[in-house]
Design a protein around this nucleic acid. Structure first.
Lengths: 198, 198
DNA sequence: ACGCTAAATGAACAAACGTTAGTTTTCAAT
DNA sequence: ATTGAAAACTAACGTTTGTTCATTTAGCGT
């Protein structure tokens, strides 16, 4: 039987939201489909109207998250091509995304190993492009002699790791507001790339 | 039957090593005891001669890892009480530990959510003490006016996240040696805390 | 208004899971 | 050399897991 007032899209959004929360809380393997179904208010078998397998579900979640992050980044970087402005935009976007949607990026970082080869390649490919964006900003800043780092690739890795760390401890009701966090980390970022004109 | 030439200690070390590798590769939930037993060369039931439950096994692994990290840190910091020397020692130890024993720290960061409340409290308690060490170094550096950061706690978090990131991409056979990494990250660390005399 | 499709149900599947129990063999101390 | 404890084996247990299937019902385009 089909339930009254249910559309494909509504149910999918509920599945997606519950899936992200459950996987973030317990991990992919420990998040059972029966538990997921209960959270959605549905039987376990019904989930297969919305995905082909649990594995495909995970791959879809992670891929979509990375695609959204990358799309938002490109939108944020389009406004200004100056490396200083772009680094500022990068930090702001990254922190905003990683605090507002911490569960999603959390599983995006944690559950890569739960993917099969194909999904893994897709998601790490997207992640690689994200890292490349930052590396390119740093390199252009060095060419313009406004930034100075000994190794642009490692600097990009160090920066992203530093920024991503917030999603492991950030608490929306905590001591620091999102805006304050962005200020702090923007400062750290410019220090890291050796930008003098702060 | 007991197997020829086997002692409690030998088997335990094999279990520990295989457990760390399997959990790092597949995650705690996905690392089954039957697979672990096969890697050790033993039957699944035999594992219960060495731990009380899978959950206790994980808690023991993570606790020991954090204890060793903390002990090595305290040993490294004992040599010199100067904040500059101590920050240098902190970075060197952290990178060395996180590259040499990357699987262990990897699960130490990833599998916290798989612990029950008690184990979780123990491990995060140790981790908190580790973070406090770094925060104390930064604060003493600020009091001496050799360091300058807007928020010592966030700076400590940012630093640790930055340094810990290496264990997600470091490859012993890759472009960068361990020594080179330490140099790079030491530089980043001093930039981050605003140390002028580099 | 009707009919087709799509979303749900509930029951069942085999496989894999953590764990326990009883038994057998080796090690180490007497 | 004998004995008691320790470490391994085999076998089985009750759950839980992801997944499938036939069936039922609601939504939507014609």
């Amino acid at each position: 039987m089909r339930r009254a007032g249910s559309t494909r899209d509504q149910t999918w959004r509920a599945i997606r939201a519950a899936g992200i929360r459950l996987i973030a809380d317990h991990g992919y393997e420990a998040a059972s489909l029966r538990l997921l179904a209960r959270e959605v208010g549905v039987q376990a078998g019904s989930l297969y109207n919305h995905f082909g397998s649990k594995q495909e579900f995970l791959a879809r979640l992670l891929t979509e998250i990375m695609q959204e992050l990358l799309a938002e980044l490109d939108a944020a970087l389009a406004a200004d091509s100056d490396p200083v402005a772009q680094l500022r935009a990068f930090v702001a976007l990254h922190i905003r995304f990683h605090t507002a949607r911490k569960d999603e990026v959390f599983i995006g970082n944690m559950e890569l190993r739960s993917l099969t080869r194909q999904g893994f390649k897709t998601v790490t490919g997207l992640r690689g492009r994200y890292e490349d964006r930052l590396q390119a900003i740093i390199e252009r800043g060095m060419k313009a002699e406004t930034f100075g780092v000994p190794d642009a690739r490692v600097a990009a890795f160090a920066l992203i790791a530093m920024l991503t760390g917030v999603c492991t401890w950030y608490d929306p009701r905590g001591r620091l507001s999102q805006a304050r966090l962005i200020d702090l980390y923007t400062d750290f970022a410019f220090r890291l790339v050796g930008y003098g004109g702060r």
